[in-house]
Design a protein around this nucleic acid. Structure first.
Lengths: 338, 338
DNA sequence: CTCGACGTCCGAAACGTTTTGGATCTTTCG
DNA sequence: CGAAAGATCCAAAACGTTTCGGACGTCGAG
């Protein structure tokens, strides 16, 4: 049904070997026969059987990405952009992208990774949203399997990663708020098992300390990265004896929820209370009020991730095995006027 | 380096055949040997080489999905949800998901499909966002390749699909607006080469006709499905001699843009002008004002799509080869109070 | 006792490629 | 003229699995 090398060989009267080598442009086949074979292959509608090639070459030309879907919804627009970046970056090298979804910390998460690795379904894996103590990375490193991580981890395992300097980003945001006169600044953190939560909290701490403000632990709460989580935690902060006049959240989605919670209490965001998010998802610029946020170029990060990974797969040396990008504070309405 | 059947065979002293059959639970192998082989396989950390299996079984257990990424951004949250649905639906059958991105109507789009089909990378393909005259579907049908489409097409080609009754949805929305007293209702349509644009426009037309309103072509404009497109087209509508008092858009993203455009002119959406979207993406409920929209359950649709596709791949009969789901009008603030 | 059935196992071929290690023939050059 | 060098080709093995067809021994029925 499908044209194979054997079919072409029979047709042109050469061996399978020669046909294969002709199509792969080896130079130990006569130029004329090469042209002939290529023409016939074209005419017969030949396309290489990618699976057979993979088996023989021990290379699938595919990278894997397991989306940590939190539940029914991949609520975070973040991941689609990351995915698009990874996919496009891979496509630039003629690599495909194999996607699975799995709830983070699900006991069968390990099986999903194992299937990709041991089944040799992919040549390398992109690990996103690193955890402080990340068994996924530990596993891949111990298997000697090519990986690239988006995010660091606490242990000093050596592996290639790309990360955004969340500490610096939050630090700048806090200092910006302090500059606006805020003294009680809340922080809605992502779950602390996530590495980037730690970095961002560090930035929060450092900024307070550098500016002689005391850390009030009541102002630091832990949300779940969803809009609903932001909403809930914001209410908790507003219920305090001395509520904060400004709040920084672990991602934009929680910022959206926090702004809603404030608005429901009749507060005007940007005047009565300032809110700053993290990510700069496309909607941040369009929410009412528009969201001041710490921008990280997610699509580009995705693209860089797959490019780095493919270099590793191909055995090329990486110019930089560990990259830290600087985020950028994007000032809009939700933080009030400067 | 990786454990193969041969390694196990050598270890237990049986043939590769027997090991294979034991692990696949054939009943022509002694129960005790079967247990022994399974245990040893487990101990040695055996995992089947998926690629080799695919080659032999002529089955990849993988479905393909090509995201029609419009440009740098997969701006539409829609696709991530669809993707998650497809991925989870497939995972339920132990199928993987291979994702590519390609700009719609890009000349090399065909190559992307061809690569998946002819390279036998996948067992079936999900085609989303059908076009009136869809060469992708024509191609897959002509190749006899398993496919499932999200959306119909104009020709009467027979292929399995799932679609949402956009005509009915828009029709109901228009009638709802008419019930609120609106007489000049604008329609920001997606590009007309998209099949769902046609259906939705049909619904718009039918509702007007059924209610004795005349169709004013100046009120129908064509946007590009992005926020910016909605913004631009809304301005165009508001610039008319007799601007509309209500506008329906082809998707939520355009509705967001349209609302912005109205707000920038000092109009209060929901009072001065009504806006209704289509999709009900997660953010529709959180935008200011919250968006009245025609809801289609995207995640569930994705899940159904891959489930139907996998049934087709397995050669099972589909209870229904063509399914039309009914959308639901979700009334929120942007359409004004009833 | 013989025959067929059954239970258990295995060799070899196959899936569609790529690669290794020559084979064969022609050309070139001392 | 002989040998080395070069050009062009190919058979066979390999990648890791599944499956086809049969082999071999044992056991129960006739």
């Amino acid at each position: 049904m499908n044209v194979t090398l054997k079919d072409i060989a029979r047709k042109v009267g050469y061996s399978v070997t020669t046909v294969s080598r002709a199509l792969n442009d080896y130079d130990d086949v006569n130029e004329e026969t090469k042209q002939l074979i290529k023409r016939v292959a074209q005419e017969m509608g030949y396309h290489p059987h990618v699976i057979a090639q993979s088996l023989q070459r021990r290379r699938t030309n595919t990278v894997g990405f397991i989306v940590p879907a939190t539940d029914r919804y991949l609520s975070d627009p973040y991941f689609l952009e990351l995915l698009a970046g990874i996919g496009d970056g891979a496509a630039g090298y003629d690599f495909d992208l194999l996607v699975s979804t799995c709830k983070p910390m699900d006991p069968k998460e390990h099986l999903v990774y194992e299937r990709m690795v041991k089944g040799r379904r992919v040549d390398g894996i992109v690990v996103a949203r690193t955890r402080c103590d990340d068994e996924r990375i530990a596993y891949l490193v111990s298997e000697g399997f090519p990986l690239i991580a988006f995010g660091r981890i606490t242990s000093d395992l050596d592996f290639p990663y790309l990360d955004v300097d969340g500490e610096k980003g939050v630090c700048e945001a806090v200092e910006y708020l302090i500059g606006l006169g805020h003294r009680r600044i809340g922080f809605i953190s992502p779950s602390m098992y996530l590495m980037f939560a730690k970095h961002r909290l560090d930035g929060y701490r450092r900024a307070l300390q550098d500016n002689g403000l005391e850390l009030d632990l009541a102002l630091v709460v832990e949300g779940n990265l969803t809009q609903a989580g932001g909403h809930q935690r914001m209410e908790q902060l507003l219920d305090l004896e001395e509520p904060p006049t400004a709040v920084i959240t672990g991602n934009d989605l929680m910022a959206f929820g926090a702004m809603e919670a404030a608005q429901e209490r009749g507060l005007v965001v940007g005047r009565d209370v300032a809110v700053i998010g993290f990510d700069d998802v496309p909607l941040a610029a369009h929410f009412r009020p528009t969201l001041t946020t710490i921008r990280q170029p997610i699509y580009d990060i995705g693209k860089m991730l797959s490019q780095m990974l493919i270099k590793i797969i191909k055995g090329e040396e990486l110019a930089e095995r560990q990259i830290i990008l600087q985020p950028e504070l994007v000032i809009r309405e939700s933080s009030g006027v400067g």
